[in-house]
Design a binder for these strands. Structure first.
Length: 123
DNA sequence: GGTTTGACCATAA
DNA sequence: CTTATGGCCAAAC
């Protein structure tokens, strides 16, 4: 069976668990996040049908080499940038977000209530 | 093919 | 506010 192109789980992936090209799925979901909005690792995982694979979302982005994927719009559930020791990347990420109009508070947090990207609800 | 590794999350204290 | 703990599961080794 030839490899299927990554597609968003709409009506076919409701109960389907994460599988086959997890990276590609993560990338596909992240691409749907518009500029000026952010999403969280957990949200991306939820869109994939498995709310408990947030770690893999971050892992998929860490292994990402495609510059067209707006990885910088993915932050953690606290509205902060997950640098995990890599402060250089975190600084770059923050600049990218600010360039899109995202505002950070004094603690370096984003107001998720305002900027969080809500995926289009199913029919 | 078992073990290690993570750009996480929710909860508890 | 912070720190600790358990869960989760796909890739890399």
């Amino acid at each position: 069976m030839p490899p299927m192109l990554p597609s968003l789980p709409t009506q076919t992936g409701e109960t389907r668990v994460v599988s086959e090209g997890f990276h590609a799925r993560v990338h596909a979901v992240v691409r749907t996040v518009p500029a000026g909005r952010v999403t969280t690792y957990g949200d991306v995982a939820t869109m994939l049908g498995s709310p408990r694979v947030a770690r893999h979302v971050g892992y998929a982005l860490a292994a990402l080499s495609d510059p067209t994927v707006p990885w910088h719009r993915v932050i953690n559930a606290q509205g902060r940038i997950s640098h995990r020791g890599d402060l250089v990347r975190a600084e770059s990420q923050r600049r990218r977000l600010e360039a899109e109009g995202i505002e950070f508070d004094a603690l370096g947090r984003v107001d998720l209530k305002r900027y969080r990207f809500s995926p289009p609800p199913g029919p």
